[in-house]
């Protein structure tokens, strides 16, 4: 399972990076979203998959999966959500004011 997950993570990273290298601001934000998913899955995979029950002590299982990465991922999900929404509104404002979402046209002034 870890092998396939790793390959899937590789695909997610490839597409995410490909998107953030594109010109369109929207695609760049979508690329960062995908990269976030890739990172979360990577964190989960690194702690080994399916080694026990969900980390709820009420289950009275012999073994549980590692709860620490889950806590980390939960924190990460919330933070990336905050950052992504901020970026998104920023992109929206830039698009609205500057009239483009082409990164190649979003350059500084010439005299800078």
């Amino acid at each position: 399972m870890e092998l396939y997950m790793s390959l899937a993570i590789g695909v997610i990273f490839t597409v995410g990076v490909y998107l953030i290298l594109s010109k369109s601001l929207l695609r760049i934000i979508l690329g960062t979203s995908l990269l976030t998913h890739g990172v979360h899955l990577l964190l989960l995979t690194m702690s080994r998959l399916k080694t026990g029950a969900a980390p709820l002590l009420g289950q009275k299982a012999d073994a549980y999966v590692d709860p620490l990465p889950q806590a980390l991922i939960l924190t990460s999900i919330v933070i990336s959500f905050g950052v992504t929404s901020f970026f998104f509104v920023l992109a929206y404002k830039a698009y609205q004011r500057l009239g483009t979402d082409d990164m190649e046209r979003l350059r500084g002034k010439d005299d800078e």
Binding site: E2, M5, I9, I12, G38, T45, R48
Partner: peptide, 22 residues
């Protein structure tokens, strides 16, 4: 060029994921 860079990152991350899980 973008694709090659992206593929490189994907390959590296796959390698990292595999090594970390093994």
């Amino acid at each position: 060029s973008n694709f090659l860079i992206a593929l490189g990152v994907g390959a590296v991350m796959t390698a990292v994921a595999l090594s970390a899980s093994s």
